[in-house]
Nucleic acid binder design. Structure first.
Length: 315
DNA sequence: GGCCAGGTTCGCT
DNA sequence: AGCGAACATGGC
């Protein structure tokens, strides 16, 4: 068993990031968190399961460190470094919410969030492709319906993650989805269009026509425009990818109805329209990405608290 | 059963 | 450029 160390940028709270990733339910998608151990199957080089805990000691002025244990599978340097990078992305090791706090501190309606979720960063999807696929699957439909679709896609096309957990799968890579049968995707519950978007994008990545290196280049606006060139990617998805795929700190999916509703409720007890949410967020530049994540933390913890079986179990 | 959900495309004015 | 319809699922 190999061990890696991740140094998140402080201020960073392992627990709140792990809870955000698992939607404050202890499990979401392929990720789980029991209050102490965050576990995730990864598909790198044959696949394995990694578990993450917080190292007990605090390095002076450098915050906490995360201990990443790789259970099985290839342990060459390249693989381990890919695993480390994926964990850093998924648990939001990069970034610094301090600039957001400086603004929110003077905003009575949002100041409580900076305490409640203090140390929350911007957890990312494992890859840009995964962020895109995830967003396309989740467009328009409710979070619950989207989760059902994603689960079925993972079960049907997901990458194996080693012999220790035969049933456990990671989100499929572009190769697995590039040649997926449209009829089969429709049978999983995707609309015809969603199925086309998904296989188009997967094919782009699998063929090398689309690459993260090319897509991520440039300003937020430039990247968003490039992303919107993909069929199935509109304004909402482009901002979502900027945030969850690239960790851009000012990304802001103003078209998101949940964001409009909950941010409006926090600020003035009634839902914002798209224009209103946009206007309100102006004062949070260039940290609107954190604003988005913190509002979604509220959404996710509410949902966990009000959904049957959603309450997180604690030992 | 209708309507809303963490929207986007396509076809009409 | 702006507007309406269609799209598929799950929960209330």
């Amino acid at each position: 068993m190999e061990e890696l160390i991740v140094h998140p940028q402080p201020p960073y709270d392992f627990r709140v990031n792990a809870e955000y990733v698992t939607h404050f339910r202890g499990r979401e998608g392929v990720d789980s968190f029991d209050g102490t151990v965050f576990a995730r199957p990864v598909s790198t080089a044959g696949g394995c399961t990694v578990s993450v805990t917080q190292a007990p000691e605090v390095v002076e002025s450098d915050g906490h460190r995360l201990k990443v244990s790789v259970k099985e599978g290839a342990t060459d340097v390249a693989t381990l470094s890919a695993i480390q990078e994926e964990i850093e992305r998924v648990l939001g090791a990069h970034g610094d919410p301090t600039g957001f706090y400086d603004i929110a501190r003077n905003d009575p309606s949002l100041r409580p969030l900076t305490c409640q979720y203090h140390g929350l960063h911007i957890p990312l999807a494992a890859s840009l492709f995964e962020a895109l696929a995830w967003a396309v699957l989740g467009q328009q439909i409710s979070a619950h319906a989207a989760k059902a679709l994603r689960t079925r896609v993972i079960e049907r096309y997901g990458a194996a993650t080693g012999t220790a957990n035969p049933g456990m799968r990671a989100f499929p890579g572009p190769e697995a989805l590039a040649d997926a049968d449209l009829a089969e995707l429709r049978a999983l519950g995707l609309s015809k269009r969603k199925a086309e978007y998904l296989t188009d994008i997967a094919h782009g990545f699998a063929s090398g026509k689309l690459t993260c290196e090319h897509l991520k280049e440039g300003s937020d606006e430039e990247v968003a425009e490039r992303l919107r060139g993909l069929r199935g990617v509109g304004p909402w998805t482009a901002q979502w990818i900027l945030l969850r795929g690239l960790g851009r700190e000012d990304a802001f999916p103003a078209g998101d109805v949940a964001l409009q509703r909950v941010l409006g409720e926090l600020v003035r007890c009634s839902a914002f329209t798209e224009k209103e949410v946009r206007d309100f967020a102006e004062s949070y530049r260039p940290y609107r990405g954190y604003l988005t994540v913190y509002v979604f933390a509220v959404i996710r913890s509410r949902r966990a608290a009000t959904t049957p079986g959603g309450a997180q179990e604690r030992a």
